[in-house]
Amino acid sequence: MGRPNSVLILGGSGQAGAGAAAVLRRWHPELPLTIAGRDLDRAQRVADELGEATAATVDLRRGDLGLPTDGKYLAVVAALWDDRLRGLRYAQERGLPYLSISSGLVDIAPEIVASAQRPGGSPVLVASHFCAGIVVLATLYAAREFERIDTIRIGAVLDESDAGGPAGLADLERWATATSAGLIRRDGVFTWVAEPDARTAVPSTDGILVPGRSIAILDVPSLALATGAPNVRFDFAVGESARRRRGGPASLEVRIDVEGTGPGGQPRSLHRYLVHPQGQRPLTALGIALGVERLLGLRGEAVPPGIHTPEALLDVSYTAERLTETGAKLIDAPGNQ
């Protein structure tokens, strides 16, 4: 059984779920957590390491998730792909906040419809962005002094040895199966781009170009609509990161290019990298933890029912502070102004 009024983390023994639980434990030592997974022994090991946490088995084929009928929770976090939306329904039926990270742009329609059908129900945070919204928030923070933004281009290099556990790999395969086209915003119009226009090369921090492609990802509409930028593109490459080429462990590198005008209408451009020496896992865990903290009202005002995205709920300056704590850095790229 979960602890009374605990945060229920579905997939809590996986990389994203366990990482987020560890972050929440550091920030809020007394916040009860329930680590739910298919393998009880694995979930119990994670719970034991955390303290103030319990383990539970979960069955996503059942409406009650296979949990005890007297279980009481503060929120439901889907740190895994829930193809039947059992976790969302479970949260809605109990009026609980809900956060998901695995739907992606191609799979969010059922979540949107389910939430629209119950407008007075749960607050739903759709965080199926890259690193659970952290790249969007870091970009908004880096570009906060622009007066007008005309173009945003993101280029992420994910080390091939850092693609995540089985759940993360399954997500990548599912998204690739759904569409090979990328979604961009061009001259204010959201546009699908197919071969060969989708193909590109993403510059790593050491200048090496890693073959990649434009992808369909929530970061594109989030950045476009948050900034008004008429041109937005997100390119993604899987290969060897610069740190691993130097003989170290895998790192994450995300290039952020922004063009527009600064104060007074003067042309301005920004070229930076968001890097983390431990790869994508710490940033994904941070994105989930920030979302949970906000949904629970542990920081900021209470979140009303309805659909929400990370940039609509989370403060970019606070996010930047937390990013620094994880060991992430925003560094200048060549040509930064």
Rank of each mutant, 00 (worst) to 15 (best):
G2W: 05
N5T: 02
V7P: 02
V7F: 01
G11Y: 01
G11F: 04
G12H: 09
A16R: 06
A18F: 11
R26F: 01
H28W: 14
P29I: 08
L33I: 10
T34D: 07
I35E: 05
R38I: 04
A43H: 01
Q44F: 02
L50D: 05
G51R: 07
A53R: 02
T57S: 14
V58N: 08
D59M: 03
L67W: 03
Y73M: 02
L74I: 03
L80M: 12
R89Y: 00
Y90H: 00
Q92A: 06
G95K: 08
D107C: 08
A109G: 12
E111S: 09
E111W: 15
E111K: 09
R118I: 05
P123A: 07
V124Y: 01
A132S: 13
L137M: 10
A143E: 06
E145Y: 02
F146G: 02
E147F: 01
T151A: 10
I152Q: 03
D159M: 05
D162K: 12
P166W: 00
E173G: 15
W175S: 13
W175T: 12
W175G: 10
W175K: 14
A181C: 11
A181I: 01
I184F: 12
V189L: 13
W192N: 07
W192Q: 14
V193G: 07
A194C: 09
E195M: 11
P196N: 06
D197I: 08
P203S: 10
S204V: 04
T205D: 12
G212C: 08
R213D: 14
I215F: 09
D219S: 14
V220S: 05
S222R: 11
S222E: 15
G228L: 11
A229Q: 12
P230H: 08
N231R: 13
R233P: 05
F234G: 09
G239C: 14
G239K: 13
S241L: 08
R243F: 14
R246K: 15
G248C: 00
R255F: 10
G262M: 04
P263M: 00
G264S: 01
H271V: 09
Q280I: 15
A285K: 13
A302S: 13
V303P: 04
P304G: 10
P310F: 00
E311W: 11
A312F: 00
T319N: 07
T319H: 06
T326A: 04
A328K: 06
K329L: 13
A333N: 02
G335R: 15
Q337S: 12
